[in-house]
């Protein structure tokens, strides 16, 4: 193998290593996304839920394979996405008498999940960048990865609640983002 061929082979080996690492990371997260699957099957949205789980896996692999800000954003997104993923699911277990048709508890849990996710996104990004890059602001790559992973995980968690759950999560995310945007605007001014 001459040097040019070795360079190409080494590049392929590097990319292969990155994909393996990304897949390992996705495999760590996937079991959590399967938790609300039973509730989705009961609500008749199994196929949709499986495609959302597939999307979560694909996003995590893609962002971790790409690395840099994408991977950092995906990590923050994974932590932030846990609350909209798990809150409605846990609520559905502790409130068995509630049905999505007559009870506002699950949409409320979705709103809370979205709100906590927005705060986690803001806090996580701040902590991460303070620690690693001092005053450098998170870029578009970071936010793209963080928000898309959070939202996809949130969809996986709120899908069994229905449209009310998804709208609730979106509302929670928007409301949670407001204080961060206000603080940001205040700082810029």
């Amino acid at each position: 193998m001459n040097d040019a061929m070795l360079l190409t082979a080494a590049r392929h080996a590097y990319e292969r290593g990155r994909v393996k690492k990304a897949v390992r990371r996705a495999l760590l997260v996937l079991p959590f996304t399967f938790l609300p699957l039973y509730a989705c099957v009961a609500a008749g949205r199994a196929a949709l839920m499986l495609s959302v789980i597939g999307t979560v896996a694909a996003l995590v692999v893609l962002f971790h394979w790409r690395g840099q800000d994408f991977a950092r954003g995906a990590n923050v997104g994974l932590i932030a996405g846990l609350s909209p993923l798990l809150l409605p699911f846990v609520t559905s277990w502790i409130a068995p008498i509630c049905s999505t048709l007559i009870c506002g508890l699950l949409p409320a849990a979705s709103i809370a999940g979205g709100f906590v996710a927005a705060l986690c996104l803001a806090g996580g990004s701040l902590a991460r960048f303070r620690r690693d890059f001092l005053d450098e602001r998170p870029g578009a790559a970071f936010w793209t990865a963080a928000v898309s992973v959070t939202v996809t995980l949130g969809i996986a968690g709120c899908l069994h609640v229905g449209l009310a759950g998804l709208a609730g999560m979106a509302l929670g995310l928007a409301v949670g983002t407001l204080p961060v945007l206000a603080a940001y605007a205040f700082k810029v001014r």
Binding site: A10, R11, A13, Y14, R16, G17, K20, K21, G67
Partner: peptide
Amino acid sequence: AQTALLKLFERAAE
């Protein structure tokens, strides 16, 4: 040396 180098790059992400 080539095998070692390829292995090294495969694990560079770690």
